[in-house]
Amino acid sequence: MTRRTFNPGRALAWVAMAVVIVVTVFPFWWMIRTALTPAADIYTDNASLLPEHPTLINFLRVLGLTSEAEARAAGGSGAHLDFAGYLWNSIVYCGLIAAVQTLFCAMAGYAFARLRFPGRDLVFAIVIAALMVPPIFTLLPNFILVKDLGWMNTMAGMVAPTILMTPFAVFFLRQFFLSLPRDVEEAAILDGNGPWGIFWRIALPMSRGPLITIGLTTTVWAWKDYLWPLLVGRDEENRLVTVALGVFLQQSPNTQPDWTGLMAASTLSVLPVLLLLVFVGKRLVQSLNFTGSK
């Protein structure tokens, strides 16, 4: 019979943990709370945890669902906003990069881990050396390349540098394929499968965990991308949420930013990743174990 005795040290530790959680979550609460506040109230109603006159008007106007006059009346600058469109662009951008990049890097990782061909280790070393090249270094020439190709302000130009590969994904997936047991594959060879058949029917299905891990990580990073899409995808048509937020801030008067609108747009930019956290949070958290203790 053990009875839990009160332990002051442990209680204090829990208090500290609670403070950490509040500090983590409160800014998001305040963002949503501001997004639900009418712009006219912003000077008077900014101390309570809930808005006095909750409204959805800020969301409606940043989604482009109100007329210009209504948007102006609700505190907007009158500039056209279409966050539904920007969200869609971001989803397409992330989906394309995550899906295609994961597949291609898995193919390469498998070849580096399992196939036998002359020059394999040398080619792998060269590809991995790209890990040492920081993004800013290739950013300037890639910008000029995309400009010369005539891909400015197109989705193709935006996804081009990352859709085919990142050195990290190749490295990560190769490491995983190296650790797969060989016997299943060898049995499949005896059954008359070629390299492609083994990869597609055996190696890929056995690697669901790592594939999801790398796919999710790629999605999150792509969702956060700012500088590159800012340089090559400024046009309204292909604008991502992050770029649109920056433009929205610039359009809004310096002395008196459209805080309620900005916070509504910010909330929209957080919503998809929040859903990701709710549905695959466990996997995301576990993926940190995975990459942290390679």
Partner: peptide, 28 residues
């Protein structure tokens, strides 16, 4: 010797590497 299959497996990644990492690094 999986030479033929291997280069096909590697093709997209090698193109991506050459065009968006190797070439721009040299150009930089």
């Amino acid at each position: 010797d999986d030479r033929r299959a291997a280069w096909l497996f590697l093709l997209p990644v090698l193109v991506g590497f050459a065009v968006f990492y190797g070439y721009p690094a040299a150009r930089g």
